[in-house]
């Protein structure tokens, strides 16, 4: 590697004294403080400032309307317009999940079920939200378009057990999703 010689800039006496630049710096921070107090911080408007600085006050103000389509929130299971559980418990999400947050116990669909031809659905499907890292790999790997990361992000609970989303809760949050590929309709 070539050696690059960097010469220090020659400072004038005024600069050597530090004071002018200290005073300048003090003015910069003072300006910020004044703007902040007046609720006119730079960028405050576009960030929905609460009136002090650029900060948004969380539970009162929310960013929900601005969340993009690809936002990765809580992973959920979805049903489709035919009211079919899309998940067939292939367990690929369980396999791909980096923090091992997903635990599935597969089960067989009863023969009297209208969707008996699909044969398989999860008996239990738990996503441990204390482990989930919202990476979205489960959604990406799903061959059945059954698992989606929704825009919900406020997952809270008072116990560890509260933080485990079971199958019922996953379908509750996930809701119905339309416009998906319905490949099982062709199966006789």
């Amino acid at each position: 590697m070539a050696t690059i010689k960097v010469t220090r800039p020659k400072l004038s006496l005024l600069e050597k004294l530090y004071f002018p630049s200290i005073v300048k710096g003090m003015f910069v921070t003072f300006k910020h403080a004044v703007r902040s107090l007046r609720g006119k911080s730079i960028g405050g408007d576009s960030l929905n400032t609460s009136g002090l600085g650029v900060t948004m006050q969380y539970p009162e103000q929310k960013w929900d309307d601005h969340l993009p389509e690809y936002y990765r929130g809580v992973p959920t299971l979805v049903t489709d317009e035919q009211d079919r559980e899309r998940c067939v418990s292939c367990q690929l999400c369980e396999f791909i999940c980096p923090p091992k947050a997903i635990a599935i116990i597969p089960g067989e669909i009863d023969s009297d079920d209208p969707w008996a031809k699909v044969e398989k659905r999860p008996k239990e499907f738990d996503i441990d939200m204390t482990r989930c890292i919202y990476c979205g790999m489960c959604e990406e790997v799903c061959p059945e378009q059954a698992i989606f990361l929704r825009k919900d992000y406020a997952m809270t609970g008072l116990t560890r057990a509260d933080m485990v989303n079971d199958k019922k809760r996953l379908y509750e949050i996930g809701g119905v999703r339309t416009g998906l590929v319905n490949k099982w309709n062709d199966i006789k």
Binding site: V88, S89, C90, L92, V118, E119, K120, P143, E144, K183, I187
Partner: peptide, 11 residues
């Protein structure tokens, strides 16, 4: 061959 792999035990 059907595209059964997600529910096929042989997968």
């Amino acid at each position: 061959h059907p595209l059964d792999c997600p529910i096929c035990d042989q997968a």
